[in-house]
């Protein structure tokens, strides 16, 4: 009988930068974050699916989702539970704020030391930063090997000694094997995440973090969560993960933002043409004469 796996998915709640509407920019040209819906980072959903596939392969395995963010990031933990995760951990503390990828990775690695998983699965990158750095940096902090750009977990040996993973690169594929524990980052080209399951939504819809419970201030909710262990989303602060303040947040971030410029199209007078024959003819003649063509 194969040993069950303790699987952790790293996930992030991100503003949906793909659907930047007209109200996404304020009149002063700054980004209006409030106008952007907060979503489950798309590639982290691909990662969750790979984790759930692994769980299906090994009876008794558990999938925990770990996220760092503000209190409302608990939304994605519930979403993950509706889709098949067993539980969630929200790493939240003002001291984490302003972190670059390195300080973020440090904080996550502290939480992971506490969890001690067999495998850590994360999305390749988050759409608000597109850096793809946190996965490898977490791996380095934990001293674990990494497999990035994963598209599919091909197999896992019976003794959990060897995992085989297909990587999707820009110009090809690579099949690699590794021992566990391991950090895997998953591409958007991997299998889509399974949808929320109605029964799971019923089961987990009242899952709450301690702060949310406090805010709800409801005897019913309190007794419900006290009776049902699985409804408790864990909430960890800096103290809970025994992290060094100097390596957190702004202070722990080697990179600093010197300047932010909002993208404004430079107005340049375009020569206006119509689709009429003489317009196109003149244009082609001009391009040929100027040696732009031919």
């Amino acid at each position: 009988m194969s040993k069950p796996l303790k699987i952790v998915v790293l996930a992030k709640q991100v503003p949906d930068t793909r659907n930047v509407g007209k109200d996404a920019m304020k009149a002063d040209g700054t980004v209006n974050r409030a106008a952007l819906p907060a979503i489950f980072n798309p590639e982290d959903l691909n990662a969750l699916e790979q984790a759930l596939i692994l769980k299906d392969m090994r009876e008794g395995s558990t999938v925990q989702v770990l996220t760092m963010g503000p209190p409302r990031a608990a939304d994605i933990l519930r979403d993950a539970m509706f889709r098949g995760a067993d539980g969630g951990i929200l790493l939240t503390d003002r001291k984490f704020a302003g972190a670059d990828t390195l300080a973020t990775s440090y904080a996550l690695s502290r939480a992971l030391v506490k969890i001690n998983p067999d495998i850590i699965v994360a999305g390749r990158q988050a759409i608000d930063g597109d850096t793809a750095q946190v996965g490898p940096q977490v791996a380095e902090k934990l001293g674990l090997p990494q497999v990035t750009y994963a598209e599919e977990i091909v197999s896992l040996s019976d003794d959990n000694g060897e995992i085989v993973i297909k990587r999707r690169l820009d110009h090809g594929v690579e099949i690699v094997s590794s021992s566990l524990p391991l950090v895997v980052t998953v591409n958007g080209s991997a299998a889509e995440c399974r949808p929320q399951h109605a029964k799971r939504v019923m089961k987990y819809k009242y899952a709450k973090t301690p702060s949310e419970l406090q805010e709800a201030d409801s005897d019913y909710m309190n007794s419900l969560c006290a009776r049902k262990e699985y409804l408790n989303i864990q909430e960890w602060s800096v103290a809970d993960v025994d992290a060094d303040d100097n390596q957190l947040g702004l202070a722990g971030s080697p990179t600093k933002v010197k300047q932010i410029e909002n993208v404004v199209f430079q107005a340049k007078e375009a020569k206006r043409l119509t689709a009429a024959d003489n317009d196109i003819n003149d244009l082609m003649v001009e391009l040929i004469v100027s040696h732009t063509l031919g």
Partner: peptide, 17 residues
């Protein structure tokens, strides 16, 4: 580099490291 889905251009520095 562009950030935030290309809506802003950020200048990043590493002063001390």
């Amino acid at each position: 580099r562009p950030a935030f889905g290309g809506n802003i251009i950020a200048t990043i520095i590493n002063p001390d490291c």
